[in-house]
Simulated scan of single mutants.
Amino acid sequence: MSRTIKNDAAYQARLDARAGILTGPTASLALGHVQANLAILTKDLAHDFLRFCQRNPKSCPLVAVSETGDPSLPELGQDIDIRTDVPRYRVWRNGELVAEPTDIRDLWNDDLVAFLIGCSFSFEEAMLADGLPVRHIEQGSNVPMYRTNIPTVATGPFSGPLVVSMRPLKAADAIRAVQITSRFPSVHGAPVHLGNPSLIGIADINNPDYGDPVEIREGEIPVFWACGVTPQAVIANVRPEFCITHAPGHMLVTDLVNSSLAVI
């Protein structure tokens, strides 16, 4: 994957998160750069979670894995500190969400492994470049995300439902979106479902499990992509004693460039 020069918009976004200036969703931030979902687990669970990601590449495409106890990820960018550079985290104890801090330095220890998972924000750049609308960016909100009735492939203790993100599109635009996003398999690739949300277990499209609802206009259909928030739904099933994730939509902005992810 390609890197960009130092002191660019991605690096500044991380500095802003580190300083507590950036605490909100990162959609449309530092356009052109790969953003990543986060899951931090204790090393006793790390091997099984790595295998879970490998068996569920659509929802959990791995971008990087840290060394045990090391908060730096030099392959993803300049001076990254995973303890501070995500705008907002989620702390889980025994499967329950207990806090949403903007800094986890006081929680970090030498037993932790960070997993960075590809994010659909990367292929949104290609959609926008092709003239396709991305509603949550238009509305200045977080992308809507939903738990589904589609199971992931269970691995060790890890199992649970697929989470999807949704973008409403007209039928012709949805076909074009399939073509565009299919070129980005390392950030979820093509949609997993188009149309009727009840067929994948979504009862109320206007009430997402994560993120914000968006307007679905006349003549549009909801289009659903596998989502890197899936580990959070799985964590609710596994109920590990301790783990940390990103808050949905609040990503690590890396120095990698989206164009390097495309498969021609």
Rank of each mutant, 00 (worst) to 15 (best):
M1D: 03
M1K: 08
R3L: 15
N7Y: 14
D8I: 01
D8R: 07
A13C: 13
R14D: 08
L15D: 14
D16W: 10
R18N: 08
R18L: 08
L22E: 07
T23K: 15
T26H: 05
A30V: 03
H33E: 10
V34E: 11
Q35E: 04
N37W: 10
I40F: 11
T42A: 10
T42Q: 14
K43C: 09
L45A: 03
D48M: 12
F49E: 04
F52Q: 09
R55G: 05
N56F: 05
P57V: 03
K58G: 04
S59C: 15
A64K: 05
T68N: 01
G69F: 03
L73T: 02
L73A: 15
P74F: 14
E75K: 08
D79L: 06
I80S: 01
D81Q: 05
I82H: 03
R83A: 14
D85Y: 05
V86H: 07
R90A: 15
V91C: 12
W92A: 06
G95M: 12
V98I: 15
V98E: 02
A99N: 14
A99L: 08
P101Y: 02
T102K: 08
D103F: 13
D103E: 10
R105S: 15
R105D: 09
D110E: 15
D111I: 05
V113W: 04
F115T: 08
F115S: 10
F115P: 07
I117S: 06
E125Q: 09
A126E: 13
L128E: 13
L132K: 06
P133H: 12
R135L: 06
I137R: 11
I137H: 08
N142W: 04
P144I: 14
M145L: 12
P151D: 15
A154W: 09
T155I: 09
P161Q: 02
P161M: 00
V163A: 01
V163N: 01
V164M: 06
V164W: 02
S165A: 11
P168W: 07
A171V: 14
D173I: 12
V178C: 12
Q179V: 13
I180Y: 06
P185A: 06
S186F: 00
S186V: 00
H188I: 02
A190F: 05
A190Q: 12
L194E: 05
L194D: 04
G195H: 02
P197C: 04
I202L: 01
I202P: 00
D204R: 12
N206I: 04
N206S: 14
Y210F: 14
D212I: 03
V214G: 02
E215G: 02
G219M: 09
E220C: 13
I221W: 01
P222V: 01
P222G: 05
F224N: 05
C227Q: 10
G228P: 03
G228M: 00
T230F: 09
T230C: 13
P231N: 14
Q232K: 09
Q232D: 10
A233I: 04
V234I: 15
V238H: 15
F242A: 13
F242S: 13
H246Q: 07
A247G: 00
A247C: 04
M251E: 02
M251Y: 01
L252A: 05
L256Q: 07
S259N: 09
S259I: 11
